[in-house]
């Protein structure tokens, strides 16, 4: 188990969890604030509506609260939280009929969500930025569910340390890092072949 720098997401999560287990009750709140956004995005990437995603995320924290002393390795806390959320999200999603195992690797039709409106400060730049962002978001949502979850979660890791989060999603070693892997390759290809998308 490699040590994480303390200012990475896994490192900060481990520090908060260790403090909590050492008796600092407030550190659990710190951990909640730190990791909840990633868990939210993981649940949503699995296709859950907002209310269901909120329930699943809260359920993950309750499971931690009730069984936290059974997590042997504090360094694994981020992976545990993401894995727990991902498993429950897929379970709920399958039960609600929103995903079946055969859907997992198939590209999905787009269901883009509107982004914020352009600001007045630099309208052209903001509109351009919004169009790029919209296209990126659109391409991500066309990825297979497996790739969507991977991309939408590992993006919160501190580059290039994507492996911890990728493993916590149950992805095979090699899904990302040190090579690009198929999911990011698919996204990259979609962006490169989109005549209206550019890096800047």
């Amino acid at each position: 188990m490699t040590a994480s720098a303390t200012d990475t997401l896994p490192g900060r999560a481990t520090a908060a969890f260790t403090a909590y287990r050492d008796g600092d009750v407030g550190a659990l709140g710190t951990l909640v604030d730190l990791v909840t956004p990633v868990l939210w995005h993981a649940a949503r990437a699995c296709g859950l509506d907002a209310a269901t995603a909120e329930d699943v995320v809260q359920g993950t924290w309750v499971k931690l609260y009730e069984g936290g002393d059974r997590i042997a390795e504090p360094g694994a806390i981020l992976a545990w939280l993401v894995t727990t959320t991902r498993r429950e999200s897929w379970r709920v999603s399958a039960r609600l009929g929103r995903a079946t195992p055969t859907d997992f690797d198939e590209p999905v039709p787009p269901r883009g969500e509107p982004l914020g409106t352009a600001s007045a400060a630099d309208p052209e730049q903001e509109v351009l930025r919004d169009d790029r962002d919209r296209r990126l978001w659109d391409h991500v949502q066309r990825l297979s569910p497996r790739c969507q979850v991977l991309m939408r979660v590992i993006c919160f890791a501190d580059a290039p340390n994507y492996a911890v989060l990728a493993e916590s999603l149950g992805m095979p070693v090699g899904s990302i890092g040190p090579t690009r892997g198929r999911c990011l390759a698919a996204l990259r290809k979609a962006l490169l072949t989109d005549p209206h998308w550019s890096l800047t």
Partner: peptide, 17 residues
């Protein structure tokens, strides 16, 4: 593309995401 190492472009895409 999948077998190439990660590069700055990848990091940018993921940061944007």
């Amino acid at each position: 593309l999948a077998s190439e190492p990660l590069d700055e472009f990848d990091a940018r895409i993921l940061a944007d995401l």
